[in-house]
Design a protein around this nucleic acid. Sequence first.
DNA 1: TATTGTTATACTCTATAACTATA
DNA 2: TATAGTTATAGAGTATAACAATA
Lengths: 146, 146
Amino acid sequence: MSYANQMPPNHALSGELRVALGQAARRIRQQRGEAGLTDPQYNVLLWLTKKGPLTPGQLADIERIQPPSMTRTVNALAELGLVQKSEHPTDGRQVVVTLTDAGVAEVAETRRRRDAWLTERLQEMTAAERQVLTDAIELLRRIAQS
Amino acid sequence: MSYANQMPPNHALSGELRVALGQAARRIRQQRGEAGLTDPQYNVLLWLTKKGPLTPGQLADIERIQPPSMTRTVNALAELGLVQKSEHPTDGRQVVVTLTDAGVAEVAETRRRRDAWLTERLQEMTAAERQVLTDAIELLRRIAQS
DNA sequence: TATTGTTATACTCTATAACTATA
DNA sequence: TATAGTTATAGAGTATAACAATA
């Protein structure tokens, strides 16, 4: 058997990609500063920044975690004063999560700190390499959302 | 200000890449089958497959976690019968972790199961898109190892 | 009856601090 | 005294099951 005129088997790419993704993601995560927000907490603030107020259920769907997990994360952010929970105007079952001013400021500061390390790594790369990663982002999003 | 003749600022790429990486990695992780190994457990088996017997300390270094965390993972694998802990031949302080036959078989089976989902996603992509991800793997490794 | 969110409970990963055994 | 590994303890994320409130 030969693989002439054929890409390497997808399962080989799959295995390498999966391991590389996992290790890169963890490495980046390790760069969070002391006393910084955890990954799930920061992600929630990012979504609120991007989409405006959301319910816990919507946040759980976006992050693909179960509602009880999101309850926990939102409560932690509320205790930190970074988000505010309020009643839904028309549906008494729902809760609306809104960024506070402190939350907005925290997003800016945390983003700066957490991206700093990765930005340095990217600056060590060539423009062509950065382009590969730029192209990969869309594909990674597709994987994440499927 | 214009960005003509200039890449998007690296910090913008950094933020998008970080989020996309994290979400893709988590999505893939969610695909582990029931009763399958956890990520850290599987990673240890992979390293042992690749490098042969290692000490807990070496495994902790490779995975960039603290020794107590690795002790726990190795013990879990030992209880599952997938690795064996034995004395170091010359240094009584050290421990040697070796794959058992069951561990070797488990690696093959777990790899197959965990890669299956991602392989499907890759097959939905074009050859050019797969090439982007193939190129990205090396860059992700560089990020992970820096 | 269905939906939204929470509480209760449990498991895993991770970390730091303190301890044991060996070099 | 330094190193390798473990134990003790704690914090965070995640999940499922059961419950309350509302639609």
